[in-house]
Design a protein around this nucleic acid. Sequence first.
RNA 1: CGGGGCGUAGCGCAGCUCGGUAGCGCGCUUGGUUCGGGACCAAGAGGUCGCGUGUUCAAAUCACGUCGCUCCGACCA
Length: 578
Amino acid sequence: MLISKLVCERTKETPADITIRSHGYLVRAGYIKPVTTGIYTLSMPAKRIVEKIQNIIRQEMDAVEGQEVLFPVTMPAELWQESGRYSSIGEEMGRFKDRNQRDMVLGMTHEEAAVHLARNWISSYNQLPCMIYQMQTKFRDEARPRAGLIRVREFTMKDAYSFHETQADLLKYYDRVYKAYERIFARIGMKKVIAVKSDTGMMGGSEAHEFMLLTPIGEDTLAICPHCGYKANMEVADGALDKTDYIPCGAAAEVYTGNAKEIAEVCKYLDIPPERTIKAVSFAIKGDGNRGVLVFLRGDLEVNEAKLKRVIKANIVPNDLKDSAQLVAGNIGPAGLDLKNTVIVYDRSIKGAKGMVTGANKADYHIKDFDVARDIKVKEFFDVAKVKEGAACLKCGAPLALENGIEVGNIFQLGTKYTAAMGMSVSGRDGKAFTPIMGCYGIGVGRALASVAEELSDDKGLVFPVQVAPWHVYLAALRTDDLEVKKTADKLYKELTRAGVETLYDDRPVSPGVKFADSELMGIPYRVVISPRGLESGQAEVVNRETGGKEFIPAGEIVRTMKKRINDAVKASKKTKK
RNA sequence: CGGGGCGUAGCGCAGCUCGGUAGCGCGCUUGGUUCGGGACCAAGAGGUCGCGUGUUCAAAUCACGUCGCUCCGACCA
């Protein structure tokens, strides 16, 4: 490719609204161009990277007997009504009517389409297990897209669906995909990807893992045990509560606290640590403004909303408490409550607590010397609190670390949620019909691009490993007005291309600094420089983008040398240890 | 959905408080001199100041509305 013809403008200045480095580089290098909120055009270089990532994914999916298919982007509402998700998913799903006023949806995931395909064509256990996958554009009308390609509304995704006779068979296959995923991310060039246990969210199902690239800019928080290897998304992470020695206390008594409402204020007013308080956090059931949820937990802890949703089996939204006469914001306590429209959830952190301070359910007062076991009746305690950094690992007792990560892939054990709802049944060994068990497996391709860019870029720009780089070589001809240089570089460009070394040829009559800066910004693995100075000794300079290492190679050896380098690098990337 | 910020040339921005000829840098075009780390000189092209309504002799500037973008939060298979 000639850079002079490439539709891809590079800029010196970073757009004002960039928050992460790699996003700035992708924009500055002209790889991506925003069209509207959360929707981007990928220019040729980015498209080439995406294709290479897709090919790596394709090879690994094929290696676990995946069959590549192509589901439609648009589907009739009826298909989604079968699974129940037409109504359970909200505004995130794109919907429209066709010319006959029929309700249609834009696919944001394809469990329904997968079952639609499989339920007619899989009729015997002999055909199981099997997996179908596709790579396709998804549209999800995210409430708040951000960080360039990290969270977008339209994106390319590899999604895969497997069907099994038994749970044991699913587990076996799930483990194979788990390992395939490890190979995929390693082959793409991401080093710090780990798998963590995750929430099953709207997908339903039993167990799930997310593959996370560890980076401070990650949107997810992960609890990681450095000792035994326990790794979980904050949404599901468990940890031991730090031990608290409760001192026997006298009868509960009201205490004046005035304007102190938040835990920090109450603690300051009474001069006690937050561990000695019980706080209330309120929510409303989503879609039902009249029903509330009230959580009581120890004052130093935060509510983990994902855990809470699982306990109450409903979606929640923050609530401003207006409706209830009994509840005084800032002074809510568990004693003496008789709430008709509110579910009360007691966190395990207050089980057995005594000598606590909590709200008195009247303005300006709290209660001290509160004893949970003595003063209220609690049927059951639940774990709905976020794990704190340093909490003891449940498996080994070592302190848990918290880290951030970008979710680059996920795998779910779906069970029969979709196959049952959509009436898929298959003849079993005993001649009786059964409902197959599903697994599903996703990778966001654009997000993978952004992630590898984020992990590997440096202060000069992007750095792409050979196996995913848009081109292998950036051929920079310095002094294109020098006939010898022009002739040599033109010839070299043709030869490199013919030899299968993907070359971006900078044929522009611009100064060397511009070419060097562009080659670095674009992250091309090797820069080959042809210049009058080099040609005096018949040599070309080769610069490694990642290491910055320079070497001089005879012009006649360039094609052979580069071809070997590229082949070796690609070969090495396929050998992934893990 | 709640809270903040911003819409002026392809990109980055100034101008708005206090209404009166629309500017700067980068990029682009032409010519010349340079040229191994984002060169210089000269001459150019390029803008419905997001959109609408209002106030006014006069609106990029003031008022109201609206659309869009963005950040924080909510949400997020």
